[in-house]
Every structure is written in structure tokens, then in C-alpha cells.
Design a protein around this nucleic acid. Structure first.
Lengths: 146, 146
DNA sequence: ACTGTATTATACATACATGAACGAGACCAC
DNA sequence: GTGGTCTCGTTCATGTATGTATAATACAGT
């Protein structure tokens, strides 16, 4: 019928700040993804490599899943791809035969460093778009959203 | 500001604000996804339904892709799923036989409204976590990131 | 009219994420 | 020990995203 002209409630919520947030995060993610692509990595791969590098020792897949805040089945596949790339190697855990540990290869270590450099470059470039005051306000607001 | 090529003192860049941003966006996205799940929708589906509702008329899949800022092949599949859910219907374009238009069904319109309510609820709840000053600062900073 | 080029939607391969179900192993009562 | 239960990694189904290739159609210039 004439629903089109009905006194519908306000349609004004079309640009809530949460959407701007999702959009900005998407843009940052895209930039990181592009930069990492130049060294043959993705954000998921770089995150995993970085966790392994920071741990300083092979981690069980469950531990890796916990540090990356994702489910274990995801890690199974991610480590599959990292292993196919030769960046990581699965090793059996001696003390618990259920466990499998992901160990960085030499190439994996090298790629992680290259990836970290790309990430830092993008972060610096993006940060340059904010004034110091804006950046501080942003950090504070983001802290409140935890 | 010797971030660029410091001789690797402590590894302190582990929490750049960009990561806090991605993390916060992830949290917001998860909340929206969960809320929308209560009415049987996902963010992707809700976004598509909302674009169709706002357009007020059936849109070609390319037009929908443009409005959702994603590639056309993605829309093909998304509309497949929406069609399977009975929320949308493909109709042939009379004036250009290459084109296919996505039209909301009655159920689709209803679900879109329900989804929008869920979204608004989540947005209100999240916004409550910020002070007015924080929210304003956040909006300004996000504007600078465009 | 014919011919190249652009555009449409789609199919396919791939990447990344989730959740459910499963076999294998560890572990805790009893 | 044996039985129940928890944890480990994997597999599978599904959703969402990308990019590439392709068939059909539209359209421009000749």
C-alpha cells in the first residue's frame, strides 16, 4: 500500500561512529594486507609467525590458537599453509603425544622480520595522518572500548 | 623518534594503536554478528538487505557490489544465499539482458528491519562505554583516517 | 553490417574464519 | 586397572572475501 509515505521512524542512524570505525579498520587491514603481500605474506600468516618468533620456541597448535584468539581448526589450516610455504614445520611433542608443535624454519624467521618491517612502515605512514592530539585521543578512546 | 632503524633495543612496538584499532573493530564486528545471528542474519546479509531497502528499488548485482565496496563475484554468492533464505529474489532486467537485479521479498524487508533494530541496540550499548568527550574525539580522529 | 572492446553475471580456485563431530591420547576417580 | 571425561589435532560443512577466467550481451567506430 502506501507504506512508502508512512510516518516511518527516523532513518538517521545511517552513519553511526561504529561504522566509521569498522570502515577505518578495514582500510588499515587492507593496507597491511597489501604491504605484507609484497613479501608473500598475509596478516594471518604474519601474526602466526610473529607469535612463534616472540615465543622463542615451538608452540603447540592450541597455544598458538589461544595467542591468536581463534579456534583450533583455523590453526590447523593456517599451519598447513605455512608449512606448504616452508615457513613452519610441525614437530611431535615428546611429552604429550596428542600435541603437535609449530616450529619456525630459517626461512620463516627471515620472512617474519621482513613482514614486521612492512607492518611498521604502514603503521608509520598511517600514524602520520593524525595529529599528536588526535592520536592520543584515539588511544584513550580505544582503551575504553576494551 | 628513532623508530625507523633502531639497533633493536627492547621489542616495544608490540602494541601500536593500529592493532588496538583492529582489535576494537573486531570486537564490534563480533557483537554485531552475534546480535544479528539472533534474527538469522549476518553482517554481510544485513548490509545487502539495508542497501536494497535504502535504494527503494531492485538493484543490479554490480550496483550492489559497488555500494557494498566488494567485488562482484562476492555478490553473486551472497545473493545466492539471500535467495536461498527467501529474503531476496533475482529478477531479469528488461532494459539490459546482461543485468540481474536483486529485489527484496516481503520477508527480506521484515528481516532487514529486525536486523536494523539489533544493530541499533548493539551500537547504543557500545556507545555507552564512551564518555561524550571520548566519543567526539573518536569521531574526529576517525574522520582524519578517511 | 562487422569488429573490437566494455560490461554483466557467473564459475572456479583460493584464503581465512567459525562450529560440530571425531579418533587418539591423557588423566582422574574408584 | 577400568571407566568416564577432558584435551589434542584434524576433518568437514559453511560463510565470507578475493582474483581470474568465461559466456552473453551491449555498444562504439569503422
Amino acid at each position: 500500500m502506501n507504506e512508502t509515505t508512512a510516518p516511518a521512524p527516523p532513518e538517521r542512524m545511517t552513519q553511526h561512529w561504529t561504522f566509521a570505525m569498522l570502515h577505518a579498520a578495514q582500510a588499515i587491514g587492507d593496507s597491511l594486507e597489501t604491504a605484507l603481500g609484497r613479501v608473500g605474506l598475509s596478516m594471518a600468516k604474519q601474526s602466526a609467525l610473529t607469535q612463534l618468533a616472540q615465543a622463542g620456541e615451538p608452540l603447540t597448535l592450541s597455544e598458538l590458537a589461544a595467542r591468536l584468539s581463534c579456534v583450533r581448526s583455523n590453526i590447523t589450516q593456517l599451519v598447513d599453509r605455512l608449512e606448504a610455504d616452508g615457513l613452519v614445520k610441525r614437530i611431535d611433542d615428546a611429552s604429550d603425544r596428542r600435541s603437535v608443535r609449530a616450529a619456525l624454519t630459517a626461512l620463516g624467521r627471515k620472512k617474519q622480520v621482513a613482514g614486521a618491517e612492512e607492518v611498521a612502515r604502514v603503521q608509520a605512514e598511517i600514524t602520520r595522518r593524525l595529529s599528536a592530539a588526535e592520536r592520543r585521543a584515539l588511544e584513550i578512546a580505544l582503551g575504553s572500548l576494551t
